[in-house]
Simulated scan of single mutants.
Amino acid sequence: MEFELFIIGDEILSGRRQDRHFAAILALLEERGHHLAGVYYLPDQPDRLEAAFRQQQARGLPLISCGGIGATPDDHTRLALARALDLPLVRHTEAGGLIEQRFGEAAYPHRIHMADFPAGAGLIPNPVNQVAGCRCGHTHLLPGFPEMAWPMCAWLLDQYYPAVAAEIRHSLIAIDAREGELIDLMQELVQHWPAVRFSSLPSYGNERHPAPHIDFSVSGQEPEVDEAYDFLRQALSLRGINLI
């Protein structure tokens, strides 16, 4: 299954904090055989968030959103999603109860607003401080704190999106190869095995190989991925290209 990822917060876009969600959530998805179809970095701006949620709903893919569901004035994600779904923002009884249990009288007047979700939302449990995230259909709101968001993401994936067989990936290095001279070969591969994901990454030299090369990879399920890889190796070898 393919997912999209929203990473929300001015602190990310300004560089005051480095994003850690992309790599972690990509790994959680890949461990379960799922794919990341797109990642979007968004500011703490209500109108921009609402527009992004509306566009994402039109695309129809499951969404994991990290950030902006706290109780401070710069947290707009919950309300932006409600508006995008044309739903009211309402107090979720169970989420409110969890906040009251966690904070007691200090839940009021501000923290309790973290229990306000689009009407009809379900909860995503938070094992760290019990302040839940929410899910509205296939849209899932998680906090920005990595130590909370990542176990919550793992829970929702295991609960609602059963794991499938992980993709097999084969890669090779074509030394001193030139992309422009190999496009016909690449086109033949993708046309013959459309279910296989193909990647061509040229480099002037990196940690994988110090001289100019192309890093080719194919990924997918057997037997197609093995067939595509064998074709690629043989076709490159026939053109006299050294492979590692």
Rank of each mutant, 00 (worst) to 15 (best):
M1C: 01
L5K: 09
I8L: 09
E11R: 03
A24G: 08
A24D: 12
L26I: 03
L26T: 15
L26R: 15
A27K: 14
E30Y: 08
E31F: 00
L36V: 07
G38N: 13
G38M: 06
Y40P: 00
L42S: 06
D44G: 03
Q45P: 00
R48T: 09
L49N: 06
A52R: 04
A52I: 05
Q57G: 05
A58P: 00
R59G: 07
L63Q: 05
G68V: 02
G70L: 07
A71M: 02
T72W: 13
P73V: 03
H76W: 13
A82W: 05
P88N: 07
L89H: 05
V90N: 03
H92S: 00
E94V: 11
L98M: 12
R102T: 13
A106G: 00
Y108V: 00
I112G: 06
A115G: 10
L123S: 06
L123F: 07
I124D: 10
I124A: 09
P127V: 12
C134Y: 11
C134T: 10
H140A: 01
A149D: 06
D158C: 02
Y160A: 14
A163D: 01
A165D: 15
A165K: 13
I168V: 14
I168Y: 10
H170M: 04
S171N: 14
D176K: 11
R178K: 13
R178Y: 13
E179P: 08
M186C: 14
Q187T: 13
V190Q: 14
H192N: 09
W193K: 04
P194Q: 11
P194L: 10
R197L: 10
R197G: 08
S200K: 04
S200Y: 01
P202T: 08
E207M: 05
A211R: 15
G220T: 06
Q221A: 13
E222M: 12
R233A: 02
A235E: 12
L236G: 07
S237F: 01
L238I: 04
N242M: 11
N242C: 10
